[in-house]
């Protein structure tokens, strides 16, 4: 067994903790840092509920060890509503009814955030391909796709100074 001191940035804050090598990133986030917005769904690398951004890329935090995140920049769902106002993705999920039970939503939104950073003006097919690692048992995905389209348009117009 080995313990390791790691320093990383999470939602803009630098934290240093000692972790056992076998601690999964998702357990570190939820239990050591008490950020419980990131969910554990399947425990088998299938569902994407635990998706967080690691250096901007969406990954399954149940399939990475916390010790591997040394020096990384991590974003979780808690980082999105800056200053209490909803992020365009959160607003899109609200406006377009992109959730029912909400369990998959934090992972779905973080996956969409990483996707939109690389595809700011996506087609519907690209969105469906982009979120295909995240399972939702309620919505049938159509409303989620609409929510992401809403966010893409809003982010684009903000980019163009149209806010």
């Amino acid at each position: 067994m080995s313990n390791h001191e790691i320093t990383l940035t999470i939602n803009g804050e630098t934290v240093t903790r000692t972790v056992e090598a076998r601690t999964l990133l998702v357990h570190f986030i939820r239990e050591d840092l008490s950020l419980t917005g990131t969910h554990i769904g399947c425990d088998t690398t299938s569902c994407g509920a635990c998706t967080v951004l690691v250096d901007g890329k969406p990954v399954k935090s149940c399939t990475m060890f916390a010790v591997q995140a040394e020096g990384a920049d991590i974003e979780t769902i808690e980082s999105l509503a800056a200053g209490g106002s909803l992020h365009p993705l959160q607003e899109g999920f609200w406006e377009k009814h992109g959730l029912q039970c909400g369990y998959c939503t934090p992972g779905m939104i973080m996956s969409a955030k990483g996707f939109l950073a690389e595809h700011p003006n996506p087609t519907e097919d690209e969105i469906r391909h982009g979120i295909s690692g995240n399972l939702c048992r309620c919505t049938g995905y159509n409303k989620i796709v609409e929510a992401i389209q809403y966010a893409a348009e809003k982010l684009q117009s903000a980019e163009a100074g149209g806010e």
Partner: peptide, 11 residues
């Protein structure tokens, strides 16, 4: 394009 899913492909 068809290996696992996009999240897995990032790692």
């Amino acid at each position: 394009r068809v290996i696992a899913d996009p999240l897995v492909r990032n790692q």
